[in-house]
Design a protein around this nucleic acid. Structure first.
Lengths: 205, 205, 205, 205
DNA sequence: CATGAATGAGCATTCATTCAT
DNA sequence: AATGAATGAATGCTCATTCAT
């Protein structure tokens, strides 16, 4: 029984917001964050500019909503998938494969979300990926930390390991930015293989 | 008898252009591509807005010049360094280490250059990394292709291998975007190690 | 048999209109005429924006209603009070004291009403105090005209005398705009004294 | 030898700024503060909207400049005139006459300046006449305070006296808002007379 | 009786660019 | 060689108003 501090959204509202988020995603993908103006977004949604601001308090809020929308869903998917795996190695592989699968099946969302994360700045110039970065990577940090502790993964600063894994996984989206219809299978197979082999604790010889 | 299609640049012209490129780099690093306006760049260069357009035909041209400036220098460095190494494995390691060293010693150039590459779009919406991508990665493609042919590297589509290597190497710049004074040593050591181990041809067991 | 050109207002209608007028007054006082938008007024009345326009044909009509509401009540009070006094001097003093007392006891109404009168313009730019000014000041004109005729007041153009008196009396509201809890007693005592002494016919010396 | 922290304004700049201030004054007088948009001001100045913001950082800055422009000049005039008078009574009379004379000879400036002062609000809703009110009325406060101390003026709170005097003097501008070609002579003669007689210390009878 | 939805006109402001000097 | 002046197009956003329900 949720306490509704603000009234439950109407059917139209839910639909419109979804439509606008979709339009924002399309716009960012087609013209880039830099040129994704309210006018462009409204044009794609086939509504007036002011209608966008009727459902979102500002253009910024809409774009941040896109980011939240995309990465919350991704994170939920990852949490569920990883929970079904046991052992750091298996969990990491599951994490990586699930991540790339998600990118594969949510191409436009992911490319737009990443472009916004990379390009957006708060009014004082701080990029988005600096705010709340800790919690965003919590799951990955846990897997990698655990694996290193158990001697399964190459020892290195957690931060570094996270950066490397994310760099490779996000590269799958970059591939799509280059060609939105690209086949992600080779990247999934080889990218994950490289990560697993690269991160595996080196064997004494 | 060289045909001078345009007159040799004067000393001041060369100096001014260098100064403006530097100002553009600083601006992009401080406020991001999105807010890097001509006015901001001119302010940092301590010249009038119109002076910028006196030396560069447009703002876009200036920013593209920054990209060229940065990546040409990086490429030259890579070519020289790799030439001194022998064998695909050693050449890849040299490539990777030189790359990260260059990022380390040219922090502002690299972070700005990458931000522009990622954010800039041509008027029709095409991102920068789609134009001339082939030649930009020529050296890396040669090293990886050679290594795979010789059975030294894990076999995969060349495109995929290039993407993975570049993703990891570029992540060093992302680290700096997060903290411009970050110590890159751990990333260099571990990043390269992960790449080498990950790309090594899997041993039959 | 009265012809009902418009049907008698229902109870809720009367109540709603009063509530909206009150909300408009509060809004003008809090944010000023310039920023008193329909949205702000509706928010304070806790109704939807469109509800405001259900009871008033336009925002302008609502604000003009506030003015009418305030100054009609003030005028009625003045008429009653002045009727009880005899002689131009006494009537003027009564007028002035009643005016300031009314301001004192209807602070928010008066300050809002005056701000609207001062700031509002018809679409063609005409200020409010140009429309129907004659009848608004009828009572004061009569008192002053009579007093001058009888040699009780300093002789001057009626218009000038009215302007002076109104300026001083309205200044009591200005005092409240500065501090809504200000004590108006000194202003009532001294303001009236100054007016009476100043307007008194000069004695031959 | 003034130290120029910013470069001396060019001839064009000085001229344009004056022209824009004039256009702003005309606009406020013609359509009121509320409707005095950048577009209207620019139209009257026969320049592009952006040209206004080339010379003034914002619309607000331009309007505040008008206020400063008007009231600084008025204050200077008052200071000079009052300095030539001796005795509180004479000084008050001089103050009042000079004030109204200034209004008379600078009709459009004064009406516009007053409308801005009355209507403008800072972003948090504070009216202009609340900021720095102390210093604006310094001269008048001094005259009235001195006169009351010497028993020449009716004793009352300084604030009240200032409010009364200013109300009457400002009413001269209100007269002009009603009719920009009105003859101010009767108001000057009678208004000043009323003030002097009204403020004079009451004689014991 | 009252509202949520939607809009078009207008707003102040930013910006890359042009041009005469 | 360099600039100040000026602009037109675009941007994010506000607002009074309309209308179907």
């Amino acid at each position: 029984m949720p306490v509704a501090s603000r009234p439950a959204p109407t059917f139209t509202e839910t639909a419109r917001r979804a439509q606008l988020i979709e339009a924002a995603i399309d716009t960012v993908n087609e013209v880039g964050y830099h040129r994704a103006s309210l006018a462009e977004i409204a044009r794609r949604a086939q509504v007036a500019k002011s209608a966008v601001l009727y459902y979102f308090p500002s253009k910024e809020a809409l774009l941040l909503h896109v980011v939240e929308h995309v990465f919350t869903a991704l994170d939920e998917r990852l949490v569920v998938a990883v929970a079904a795996a046991s052992g750091a190695v298996d969990r990491l592989r599951t994490y990586a494969e699930t991540y790339i699968d998600y990118v594969d099946t949510h191409r436009s969302e992911l490319t737009a979300g990443l472009e916004i994360v990379v390009s957006h700045r708060t009014p004082d110039g701080t990029p988005l990926y600096l705010t709340g970065a800790e919690e965003d990577t919590a799951l990955l940090r846990r897997i990698l930390g655990e694996g290193m502790e158990q001697g399964l993964f190459r020892r290195m600063p957690l931060r570094t390991a996270v950066d490397i894994v994310e760099a490779v996984l996000d590269a799958s989206a970059t591939t799509l930015q280059r060609d939105r219809h690209a086949d992600l299978a080779p990247f999934r197979d080889q990218g994950v293989a490289v990560l697993m082999a690269g991160l595996a604790a080196p064997t004494r010889s």
